[in-house]
Amino acid sequence: MKNAYLNFAQMITGIMVAVLLFIHIAVQKLGVILSFLGFKISDPLAFNSMMERARQGLWAGIYICLLAFGLFHALNGLRNILLETGLSPAKMRTLTWLIIIFGLIFFALGTYVPLVLLTT
């Protein structure tokens, strides 16, 4: 039953990641097409442009949501693949905890930096 809930969460987070990541990639990588459509984006990788976005709560929110949904989707997907390798339940439990700890460390790191930049 637990895996059924995880599978459902995998679908929901997948949709969220697809939407948020498309916004992220469009702003970073679709400059030529977006400017053709009337949206002017000035060099999104320049430090000033990056900091300007980092100081807006909306962008910080988008990045943190993307991180949370993305980490869950990625690590749960990785666990699904590992489940197929036929490891013993005890080893699988250890691996699951390692994956959770890895996810929490990256979530802490990826949340801390946008929050710091938001206030600088």
Binding site: Q28, K29, L30, G31, V32, I33, I41, S42, D43, P44, L45
Partner: peptide, 11 residues
Amino acid sequence: FFIDFAAGGPG
């Protein structure tokens, strides 16, 4: 994405 990539893109 290739159009943007070929055009150099913003990044």
